[in-house]
């Protein structure tokens, strides 16, 4: 089945992603920021779907929105919001910020100008039906060792976080 009205979905999802991302940094209330972040992450999941990566989209929803943002909200609810709202929202590092933004903008322009030659003309399109299976094969057959090392690294990080947070175990 061919995709329907693809450009409109792309523009809609991108607009939601960008607007809510702006909302994340502009809102004074941290809970509002976290809720705006949910919309950013969900529209990113939609964009992954449009790139024929349903597994990544599903993982995006289940891990980022269902797990990480819930933890964010959990932590935010425990802190004192009245005090948070009196703090400065922006610091005075606008020069560094401007440089970083300019560098990123230059990168975008470069990609836009030279895009045709950098990227392959036709993306390799895997059959959508087997996307998850392809990801699984990549992780557990082709790149097994790097994958296991990454999981070990995460385990070390978890243990380290527990040790740092708790003096007496």
């Amino acid at each position: 089945m061919d995709p329907v009205a693809t450009p409109y979905f792309f523009y809609g999802l991108s607009a939601v992603a960008v607007l809510s991302a702006v909302g994340v940094i502009m809102r004074r209330n941290p809970v509002h920021s976290a809720i705006a972040l949910i919309f950013t992450l969900l529209s990113l999941a939609g964009l992954y779907l449009m790139l024929y990566a349903p597994f990544v989209a599903g993982v995006q929803i289940i891990l980022y929105v269902g797990g990480i943002v819930v933890l964010f909200l959990f932590v935010i609810m425990l802190i004192n919001i009245e005090r948070m709202q009196r703090e400065y929202q922006f610091n005075k590092q606008w020069l560094v910020g401007l440089l970083a933004a300019a560098a990123l903008g230059a990168l975008f322009v470069a990609v836009y100008v030279k895009g045709q030659s950098i990227f392959p003309q036709h993306a390799v399109r895997f059959p959508e039906q087997l996307n998850t299976q392809q990801v699984g094969k990549m992780l557990y057959v082709d790149y097994l060792l790097p994958f296991e090392i990454a999981s070990l690294l995460l385990l070390v990080a978890i243990v380290g976080a527990v040790v740092m947070a708790k003096k007496r175990i």
Partner: peptide
């Protein structure tokens, strides 16, 4: 029928928590 059906279900079902947290806060 999605090829990520069960993943989608578990993910969206976990989003319901967000609504409960939002309501309480």
């Amino acid at each position: 029928d999605m090829n990520i059906g069960i993943l989608f279900m578990l993910g969206v079902a976990s989003l319901g928590t967000l609504g409960i947290i939002m309501a309480g806060w």
